[in-house]
């Protein structure tokens, strides 16, 4: 290590550089191998989901040969589902509940975040904290009192119940994300707009929303994820098949019948998982940035 060693023999440090390089390359390869291992483990269920979805019930029940491969791949399960009125119903229910939830949640969150980060009123600090706290209240804590409340409102077994309840799951975190993004917009920007002649609504629509677009994308994805994947509320409050969303429809309705409908069940899972996967494929970076922005600050 000491400098005196280098005085006599020049090649020594060179060899050291070479070994460091080698070490680094080894570490890189080790990382790749380990990552490959984890990716394989992680992808077993989705892989098996797709494999099974391509099998016929006959092939599944025969139990002949390797279950990890398909002998006679077929899209029949997918076709059948697509023409199945019940499945179409679940899909439509999920789509409309999710669309309304996202719109509602984002509207509430953006308005509140704008107010909390820019306008302020007595107690706005308390409200911000309160919003964060409610984010920490899990759905499984309140589903029983909510069951009673929905009963009074006559919303049991109606997808409207979900439209009412899903925002409670999405809004707190969406507001939290949006407050973060809005606060990072320099104060001078709205002041410049104010001087340029913009009103508060104009500042929100023409400056804040476009500038905080990455945050809006992140929050929208969050709201989407919550609404699309929710299981407890639809399971608890929607008991008839025609009101079911995808998750409940698949888990509760499809499983009932023939045991050998697994091909179809897995096809349904794959189709229901496709929208989030597509969205994440394109917008993952925004979502991750939004999730981690608050956490890594400071």
């Amino acid at each position: 290590m000491s400098a005196s060693a280098t005085a006599g023999n020049m090649p020594a440090p060179k060899a050291k550089v070479g070994s460091m390089e080698k070490q680094r390359r080894m570490a890189l390869w080790a990382s790749y191998i380990a990552l490959t291992f984890f990716v394989i483990i992680f992808l077993i269920p989705p892989f098996y989901m797709i494999i099974t979805s391509l099998k016929t019930s006959a092939e599944i029940s025969a139990q002949a040969g390797n279950p990890w491969i398909v002998q006679n791949p077929t899209f029949d399960n997918y076709w059948e589902l697509m023409t199945n009125a019940a499945f179409q119903r679940y899909f439509i229910n999920s789509v409309w509940v999710t669309a309304v939830t996202v719109t509602l949640s984002m509207t509430i969150a953006i308005l509140a975040a704008f107010s909390l980060s820019r306008m302020g009123f007595k107690g706005s600090q308390v409200l911000s904290t309160g919003v964060f706290l409610t984010y920490l209240v899990p759905p499984s804590l309140l589903f029983i009192p909510l069951f009673q409340i929905l009963g009074w409102l006559g919303l049991i077994n109606s997808t409207w119940a979900l439209v009412l309840l899903f925002p409670t799951l999405a809004v707190p975190f969406c507001t939290w994300i949006m407050i973060g993004y809005f606060s990072s917009i320099p104060k001078e920007l709205d002041e410049a707009a104010l001087i340029d002649g913009a009103s508060y609504p104009q500042i929100l629509i023409q400056i804040f929303i476009p500038v905080a677009l990455p945050g809006i994308i992140a929050a929208t994805i969050f709201a989407f994820t919550v609404a699309w994947g929710a299981f407890l509320y639809p399971l608890a409050y929607l008991y008839s098949a025609d009101q079911a969303t995808l998750t409940v429809g698949i888990v509760r309705e499809l499983i009932k019948g023939d045991v050998f409908a697994w091909g179809m069940i897995m096809a349904a899972c794959a189709m229901a998982a496709a929208p989030p996967i597509i969205i994440y494929t394109f917008l993952m970076d925004y979502y991750i940035a939004g999730l981690t922005a608050g956490a890594t600050k400071g």
Partner: peptide
């Protein structure tokens, strides 16, 4: 790589659990 590792987290949990159930199935477990 990140995308591949995130797949478990992206699929709605109820649906991936269903797949796990199928993987654990007493008579058909892969």
């Amino acid at each position: 790589w990140r995308g591949l590792l995130l797949v478990p987290w992206v699929i709605p949990l109820s649906l991936s659990t269903l797949t796990w159930w199928w993987l654990f199935d007493p008579s058909y477990s892969a």
